[in-house]
Simulated scan of single mutants.
Amino acid sequence: MNRPAPSTPSPAVRDRLAELSAAGVSVWLDDLSRERLRSGTLAALVRDRSVVGVTTNPTIFAKALSQGDAYDRQTAELAAAGTDVASAIRAITVADVQEACDLFRPVWESSGGVDGRVSLEVDPTLARDSDATVAEAAVLWKAVDRPNLLVKIPATEQGLPAIVHAIAAGISVNVTLIFSVERYELVARAYLDGLAGARRNGHDLGRIASVASFFVSRVDAEIDRRLDTIGTDAALALRGRAAVANSRLAYAAYEKVLASTEWAELSDRGATPQRPLWASTGVKNPDYPDTLYVSELVVAGTVNTMPEKTIDAFADHGDTTGDRVTGYADEARAVFDELEAVGIDFTDVFLTLENEGVAAFEKSWAELRDTVEHQLAR
């Protein structure tokens, strides 16, 4: 009797996202929709792709509401109740975020509140109004009523005092639209001041969380555009190097905060670090590796929030080759010195990026309003 030859066991499939998580990088999805929630695809990402959090923004919600019929029932009910557009937007987005918070609640609990977070942004038209931003943050915090919420506040000059007051009121904050190290240092100062205020106000510091969201790919996109305009060999050789260098310098600034006496005192009272979050990590230049802003920014204690396309790319061929950030500050400064030498004006770059970022979210907010208004009328 001929017996079949014993089969050779196939090698275990490499779980690259699990490796990234094991290196201390929290994988968050930069997307949310009711379809994701109801279809189970978000739960599948948690189960199969090591996703432990979600970030949203007006662009994401505008896209979600413009596609499919997942929101039709709620908008019909809101229309029947005579709800105005602004209140309808809040009701719709809050409902999605509440459901996502509930989905991630086990992650939040098992991680001790580090992960399992879901972000919801204040109305971006308030980005230049401190008082209105604080008021909106308080309304969203109360409306969602979930401990694993992060309220997103932009790091504009007017946003900085809003961050202080929101943290002091016990609200967990995702500080968004950070482009420069100088602005991050002010954000870190706002977090420390906010925690001091929270302590005076009797809040449990251990219940307050924050991340500082550094936008990555947009830095390369803007600086590469300027390098192309300069056009010299020295300038063109620097394309694609600014964003990673900028992020590494930001992390070095974060390390200084953690080494400060002021942070040590707050930490002793239960405060948790304001983790760096790498945002806008999908590459905008197709000539660059599609996992560039993940592989080159691996360092423990950080978050990388990615569109699903980038998550899939990393799962397929991404590499975690150890810490790619700690100890790279000198190399990053050398890149900035070279960029400055060929004519890059960093002050103008970062101001341009901030203004464009606020304008883009305001545009998406207007699209969201138009979509909801149309659905209510229909």
Rank of each mutant, 00 (worst) to 15 (best):
P9E: 08
R16S: 06
L20M: 11
V25Y: 08
S26V: 03
L29Y: 07
D30K: 00
D30A: 03
D31V: 04
E35H: 14
R36Y: 10
R38Q: 15
L45R: 12
R47P: 02
R47K: 01
D48E: 10
D48W: 15
S50K: 12
S50Y: 14
S50F: 15
V52W: 05
T55S: 05
T56W: 02
N57M: 08
P58S: 07
F61C: 00
A64P: 06
L65R: 03
G68L: 02
T75S: 15
A79Q: 13
A79L: 14
A88C: 03
A88V: 00
V97I: 03
Q98T: 04
Q98E: 11
D102M: 02
D102G: 05
F104I: 13
V107N: 04
G112T: 06
V114N: 02
G116D: 05
R128W: 12
R128Q: 15
D129P: 03
A135Y: 12
E136Y: 01
K142S: 07
K142Y: 07
N148G: 11
K152V: 12
K152C: 00
I153E: 09
G159W: 10
P161Y: 00
V164T: 01
A168S: 03
A169T: 08
A169Q: 14
A169R: 14
V173D: 11
S180Q: 04
S180D: 04
V181Q: 02
V181K: 10
V181W: 00
E182C: 08
Y184C: 01
V187K: 09
L195D: 09
V211L: 09
A212W: 04
S213W: 03
R218N: 01
V219E: 06
E222W: 03
I223N: 08
L227I: 10
T229G: 11
L236H: 05
A237C: 03
R239G: 00
A242T: 08
A245L: 04
A245Y: 05
N246T: 08
N246L: 01
L249E: 03
L249H: 06
A250L: 03
Y254N: 05
Y254E: 05
Y254T: 05
E255G: 08
E255V: 10
A259E: 13
S260P: 14
E262H: 14
W263D: 11
L266E: 05
S267D: 13
T272H: 02
Q274L: 07
S280E: 02
G282S: 14
D287I: 00
T291W: 05
V294I: 10
V298G: 07
A300G: 14
A300H: 11
V303D: 08
N304L: 10
M306H: 00
P307W: 00
E308F: 00
I311H: 08
I311W: 09
D316A: 04
G318W: 09
T320E: 04
T321C: 12
G322I: 00
Y328T: 02
D330S: 03
A332M: 06
R333T: 15
A334I: 01
V335S: 10
A341I: 08
V342I: 05
G343L: 11
I344F: 06
D345Y: 02
D348W: 14
L351D: 06
N355M: 13
N355Y: 09
N355A: 13
G357R: 09
G357N: 12
V358H: 06
A359E: 08
A360G: 00
K363F: 13
S364G: 06
A366L: 13
A366M: 07
D370H: 14
T371R: 02
E373F: 07
L376N: 06
